[in-house]
Design a protein around this nucleic acid. Sequence first.
DNA 1: AAAATTAACGCAACAATGTTGCAATTGATT
DNA 2: AATCAATTGCAACATTGTTGCGTTAATTTT
Lengths: 130, 130
Amino acid sequence: MKATRNTTAKTAVLEVFEKSKTALSHTEIQKQLNDVCDRVTIYRILDRLVNDDIIHKISNLDGTVKYAKCNHSHQRVHIHNHAHFSCENCHEITCLESVKPSYIMPHNYKVNEINFTLSGLCPKCLNSNI
Amino acid sequence: MKATRNTTAKTAVLEVFEKSKTALSHTEIQKQLNDVCDRVTIYRILDRLVNDDIIHKISNLDGTVKYAKCNHSHQRVHIHNHAHFSCENCHEITCLESVKPSYIMPHNYKVNEINFTLSGLCPKCLNSNI
DNA sequence: AAAATTAACGCAACAATGTTGCAATTGATT
DNA sequence: AATCAATTGCAACATTGTTGCGTTAATTTT
């Protein structure tokens, strides 16, 4: 339908995701890009990548929004039903690909998407006795 | 420890929550309050109410933040482990008190809080064929 | 390989949301 | 009634996200 182009800015953003093990906010991406492109462009690239199903959006308990690359095998129908972990100490958000919640819904609801975010202490911060 | 006071502004905010069946954003509360108090005051009241465990904060997939009154019986230790439903059509967020996800966590994580938000169509919007 | 098409960009300006400092007010306590 | 500190209003600021528009550049077509 659409024709998404491979621009230098988009490539740069994707490289940042490639390097990062954790989810990134718009601001964090901007810092790593070092003026490769405008702030607005990053917003637009993120929107496009979400639409193209290359990254997904995660909204944290504290209201911050982050993005992470989808590193699943290319499925035809793609639902981000895995959990995310948000560390209260280092504020890193990581995908817990293996954690998939099971639940029972009341009737008459149509569920399209789920957001399952757990927060607490990540292994790194848990072991460095806070 | 602290001494939270019962002010007119706080009472007004609580009345708004009492009347509402759905979760409310700061803006929605402000509109219903009709200049009872300043915009900043509402932010501070919400912070206090969350701290006092009277309301809880819900952050939606789209990044919007809402608050809802906790209408559970007064438990000593209080974890908001129920789900929330966010309608993509009417944008209302409701608590699904009965829906509690079960999941298995990897070791070395300490989970303090969970945020389980489902989005799609609520019964009201589902039945009014969109 | 050049021309044509249009997605993507930069810039500026704006809108929404949340935060902070400080003096004045007011609820609770003595 | 006097005291104390939590709460408020105001102003100013910070952050985050959006929009319009003329220009640039990635693809496609010729």
